Simulated scan of single mutants.
Amino acid sequence: MNSPITFTKDEEQLSLYIMKVYPTDVSVIWENYTKVELLEKWWAPKPWKCETQKMDFREGGSWNYAMVSPENEKHFAGLNYQEINPHRSIAVSDFFTDENGNINTDLPKLNWLIGFTGIEQGTKLTFNIYFNSLDDMKQILEMGFEEGFKMQLNQLEEIVRGN
């Protein structure tokens, strides 16, 4: 049984707040966000998979990847690492790209602050996601972000539980 996920939409603040508790140490969750071989195991909602094109995990670095369908349809995206506080937080800008990593300006760009907090039950993982406009927020949600992201977070839980 997966632990619950808090998913709160705030249209006034143009933001999403997402929180989930994992029954493991912060260092385990941190590694699942910072090592390609672990990130690729859960970042895409099944049956899709994640394929990294390149990852440079450092402030000023980036991660470019594709979400790949079972029919080999690819949707490309990337993010830039803005601030990294080891085992505490990661701030990124997130965007859609073409296959060469060029930003697709027709789709929204988001800013994320991901927090990693050690608690008695394990790790509280929080996401504060900020949008440039209400239209951008609605577009991302209409693309199935809530359902897909919850699937990904539950997949990570299954991995850390050893299922």
Rank of each mutant, 00 (worst) to 15 (best):
E73T: 13
W43K: 01
V21M: 02
E83L: 08
T126V: 00
E71D: 12
K124D: 12
N64M: 15
G60S: 09
N80G: 05
L107E: 11
K54W: 15
N104Y: 03
E147W: 04
D136P: 04
F116M: 06
E142K: 06
I84K: 05
T24H: 08
N163C: 07
N163D: 03
K35P: 02
H87R: 10
V160A: 12
L134G: 15
G118F: 05
K150A: 15
L14V: 09
K74N: 03
E157S: 14
Y17L: 14
R58Y: 02
V92E: 03
Q155D: 10
S133D: 04
G118M: 13
F57P: 01
K35F: 06
V28G: 00
G115P: 02
F149V: 05
P45C: 13
R161T: 14
F131K: 08
R58I: 00
R88D: 10
M1W: 13
E157N: 02
I140N: 09
W63F: 09
N111F: 11
I140E: 01
Q121G: 00
V92K: 05
V92Y: 00
D98F: 06
R161Y: 06
E51F: 00
I129G: 00
C50N: 02
P45I: 05
G162D: 03
T97Q: 11
P70N: 09
K138R: 15
K20E: 06
L38Q: 07
V28Y: 12
T52R: 12
I90P: 07
S69A: 14
